[in-house]
Nucleic acid binder design. Structure first.
Length: 578
RNA sequence: GCGCUUGUAGCUCAACUGGAUAGAGCAACGGCCUUCUAAGCCGUGGGUUGCAGGUUCGAGUCCUGCCAAGCGUGCCA
């Protein structure tokens, strides 16, 4: 690798590779062991550490401390280390040369791309899908979590050298969408004929009335009166039956083209609501993929033929079944119902078929209430002959929504739920995002609305932003002295800050490996902590040594870049002032 | 019943795929602004990691069995 004059030292990932080579050369039989730096518990244990000697002890049948000794002799060849110590049962603790860190800081000042690990492996392509809530109403606070986690992951994977495509899959076909269309129609009819009872099986939200109010001449007066006349046919029935009957009757009373128009208008109205909400928290998609397009472009038909040819479809009770139980699912699944309608699963098979054609790795960020769905998608993938592709279902535990101590109902149909929009309004976009990303995705999340509001002044988000704003303030007030003498940075906190920045890429690769964006939040909080500490310990602007002052401003500039990069991975704009 | 996920300080959560004395933030208590933004800093107290076994140099992390919570177990999506 070509190194310019200011980069005399290896970056962390290069250092890791070098150490790997040395140890593997020393112990050829241990080639299967991956050596990764760890961070020691406290600063007096050095900047980096390895537990490799203890891992090797079993394989080599030698004492860990002897192995550590052998390794440390070899590692003296590496220029970056000031010294290597052996501690406890056989830990190797590394103390980096001060110049390794200062050179790194200088490198970032010259080019902030240096913050990231440069992977050697062949870049893979990833096809991501997240949220994909049905377009039957605005997003609620539960969707917010997978939205934030999904989009943060997409950015993190991009930084990790994957090429990433993001989809929102729009279920614009099926019973729920028919119910949506009928809800709008009935609200319209009700506006003309107030005595009509609006059924409980229809969507109750205010937005339905708004969509209906934009209709005027589409529904003719005679259709209105005939719908009113038919009311008794569904009003006396049980829920599911009433819903089905309602759809059938309304479809029969309104021309196909009108019905289709209203349906499309309702869907696009709601998609706009969803898009706008997500826009406020910096979430954007490459594509809004319509389920209805799958049917138009024959993808579904193609998959059917393929599955049929592989002998994985059979008929039973008038329906078409997919033999998913032969592919590790717990039972076979219907793909075409006896009434000839496609199941959701069937169209989704076709959707995923297209994903596998375009990418090596498919990641679906999805609520954990759908975890039973994964095995059948995996089954379909393998039945279609995509065994070499990777399907990852990243389940997010659902937020249990509380208002004070009371559970809040999350039913879309009842319309009694807190929307994502309301949450962003109350809490603000930045804190909302940070709060969602802060927790490990597979951890249950108690989302107390009152608490979320209270946290607006208490949120770790502000802690990080405050660090950034403080730095901006200092930089703008500092005299402009151009000094490159970074070696003047000798304060212990300065070293800790440099070390934290040096390790930025390990946090990114950890987040990328575990598909867990919360590592980024914790990294930022750690860095912010050091900044606040530094601010209190050192009176930076009052320094009479102007060269040191300048070096310190350089360090702060570099810290600012790092905070900004971390926040932007989450989709948060850094604040210049509080 | 079966399956998946989770259980860590009073509360909300971490713990780098088995490593060092299990850490932060709230909350409690005690200090720090005539000095660059006190939305900050420093300090103190707080733990049988749900329970019981097992695997090994070493377990919050792995295996088994219980207990508790959430979800799933549709020709719903």
């Amino acid at each position: 690798m070509l190194r310019s004059f200011y980069l005399r030292y290896l970056m962390l990932y290069e250092l890791e590779i070098a150490v790997n080579k040395l140890i593997h050369k020393l112990y050829p039989s241990a080639s299967n062991i991956v050596i990764q730096f760890e961070r020691p518990k406290s600063a007096d244990m050095g900047d980096l550490s390895l537990s490799t000697a203890m891992v090797l002890a079993k394989q080599l049948k030698k004492s860990p401390r002897d192995i550590a000794n052998e390794i440390s002799t070899q590692l003296k060849l590496i220029n970056e280390f000031d010294r290597v110590e052996i501690a406890g049962p056989g830990f190797l603790n590394f103390f980096l040369k001060h110049e390794v860190l200062t050179a790194f800081i200088q490198k970032i000042l010259n080019n902030n791309e240096s913050l990231y690990r440069e992977y050697n492996e062949i870049p893979q392509s990833v096809y991501m899908e997240f949220v994909s809530a049905n377009p039957t109403g605005p997003l609620h606070v539960g969707h917010g979590r997978s939205a934030v986690i999904g989009s943060a992951l997409a950015r993190i994977l991009k930084k990790s050298n994957y090429s990433v495509h993001c989809d929102y899959y729009v279920n614009d076909a099926g019973t729920q969408i028919d119910t949506l269309a009928c809800s709008v129609i009935l609200r319209y009819v009700q506006s003309q004929t107030p005595e009509l009872n609006y059924p409980t099986t229809c969507y109750q939200g205010e937005y339905i009335t708004e969509i209906a109010s934009e209709l005027n001449t589409e529904i003719l007066p005679q259709a209105v009166s005939s719908i009113v006349e038919h009311e008794s046919k569904w009003s006396s029935l049980e829920d599911t039956e009433a819903q089905r009957t309602l759809i059938t009757i309304i479809k029969s009373l309104i021309p196909d083209s009108t019905y289709k128009l209203i349906k499309e208008r309702a869907v696009s109205y709601i998609i706009d609501l969803i898009r706008t909400d997500l826009d406020h928290i910096n979430i954007h998609y490459d594509q809004w993929f319509l389920e209805s397009d799958l049917i138009k472009n024959d993808a579904v038909k193609h998959c059917y033929t393929q599955l049929k040819a592989n002998n994985t479809i059979y008929e039973k009770d008038g329906a078409q079944w997919f033999t998913s139980s032969q592919f590790n699912d717990e039972k076979d699944r219907v793909i075409i119902r006896s009434n000839h309608e496609h199941t959701y699963f069937f169209n989704d098979i076709a959707y995923h078929y297209q994903k596998y054609l375009k990418a090596d790795k498919v990641i679906n960020v999805i609520g954990s209430d759908h975890h039973g769905y994964g095995p059948r998608l995996e089954a379909a993938k393998n039945a279609l002959g995509f065994k070499d592709k990777e399907l990852i279902m990243r389940y997010c535990q659902f937020a249990i929504l509380l208002r004070g101590k009371e559970k809040v109902s999350m039913s879309t149909r009842s319309g009694q739920y807190i929307t994502l929009h309301q949450l962003i309004d109350e809490v603000g976009p930045g804190p909302t995002v940070f709060f969602y990303a802060l927790k490990k995705p597979d951890q249950h999340l108690e989302f107390d609305i009152e608490l979320a509001k209270k946290q607006s002044s208490d949120n770790p988000y502000y802690y990080v932003q405050y660090a950034h704003a403080r730095i901006c303030q200092l930089i703008s007030k500092a005299q402009n002295v151009k000094s490159q003498e970074m070696t003047l940075l000798s304060h212990p906190t300065e070293r800790q800050i440099m070390n934290q920045i040096y390790q930025f890429d390990t946090f990114i690769s950890r987040a990328s490996r575990d598909l867990s964006p919360h590592y980024v939040c914790f990294y930022l909080m750690d860095l912010a902590k050091l900044v606040h500490q530094y601010y209190n310990d050192v009176n930076i602007l009052k320094d009479s040594d102007l060269k040191r002052l300048s070096a310190r401003i350089n360090l702060l500039e570099c810290t600012k870049i790092t905070l900004k990069e971390g926040l932007s991975l989450l989709g948060i704009e850094p604040k210049e002032r509080m």
